[in-house]
């Protein structure tokens, strides 16, 4: 059983190949370089190195967002098209859930998040329940300030994970103090091996209908909906 996993939802580019229970190859970079140029060559290089041809793949796992809209679409388009061409199942895993795996052995709440600009974040709350990474609070696009206030009321230990942790370190400590734990930078990026593991345990999605987990409407759409509402109220 061979699984190919790919993640381009943040600056991190990750590709992993899993054979049965083991990761036999993994490429991870954390660079501000172009995913569109690098993803396919990275997949080709890793599969060559691990001596696997596309026809041997049994499943494709992709990080479906949230994250950079463009990045997520590059990963999803590549994964969906490969799965369609090879006629194999595809699984979309939340990019936040994949990141939460960095806290797999933490025994309280895990809060993975990505910066969403204007002091907002894409985030959710997770906890390992002994079998799977369980979502405790649904994923959302929220002001970090409001989110931290909400977390503070839980009165529990929370592990924070994010490639954008630096910009939020102070505000997290201000709100949660000793209830927050921020591990070293090496834990702050998602690993494609975790993505492969998470996807292995999940049911396949439909190749045609699998869409990015944007967590936010396109700006033009949001404005348009607002306008329709205002018109109704007039």
């Amino acid at each position: 059983m061979y699984i190919l996993a790919m993640d381009t939802s943040t600056h991190t580019l990750g590709v992993a190949v899993m054979k049965n229970e083991r990761i036999i190859g993994e490429i991870v970079t954390d660079l501000k370089k172009n995913h569109s140029i690098r993803l396919m060559p990275a997949i080709a290089a890793l599969m060559k190195e691990t001596n696997i041809v596309p026809e041997q793949l049994d499943k494709i796992v992709v990080a479906k967002g949230p994250g950079s809209y463009t990045g997520v679409r590059i990963g999803l388009t590549t994964a969906k098209t490969m799965a369609w061409a090879l006629n194999i199942p595809i699984v979309g895993v939340s990019s936040l859930e994949a990141l939460a795996y960095q806290g797999r052995f933490y025994n309280s709440f895990i809060c993975p998040f990505f910066d969403a600009r204007r002091r907002m974040v894409f985030t959710g709350l997770y906890q390992w329940d002994g079998q799977q990474m369980k979502r405790i609070v649904h994923e959302q696009n929220v002001l970090m300030e409001d989110w931290l206030e909400f977390l503070g009321r839980k009165k529990k230990q929370i592990l924070f994970l994010s490639p954008h942790i630096d910009a939020y370190r102070t505000i997290i400590k201000d709100h949660l103090g000793d209830h927050s734990l921020i591990p070293e930078d090496v834990y702050q990026m998602a690993k494609p091996s975790h993505l492969a593991l998470a996807g292995k345990m999940k049911q396949a999605d439909h190749t045609y209908t699998l869409t990015p987990n944007y967590l936010r409407l396109a700006e033009a759409e949001a404005n348009w909906l607002k306008l329709q509402k205002e018109k109704q109220n007039d």
């Binding site: 569109s36 809209y69 463009t70 590059i74 388009t77 098209t81």
Partner: peptide, 19 residues
């Protein structure tokens, strides 16, 4: 650019998967 990227990445995935 965002629109072009979908076609380009789909084409690359096909080229690789189907040799």
């Amino acid at each position: 650019v965002g629109a072009l990227l979908i076609g380009v990445n789909a084409a690359k995935a096909l080229a690789f998967a189907k040799h």
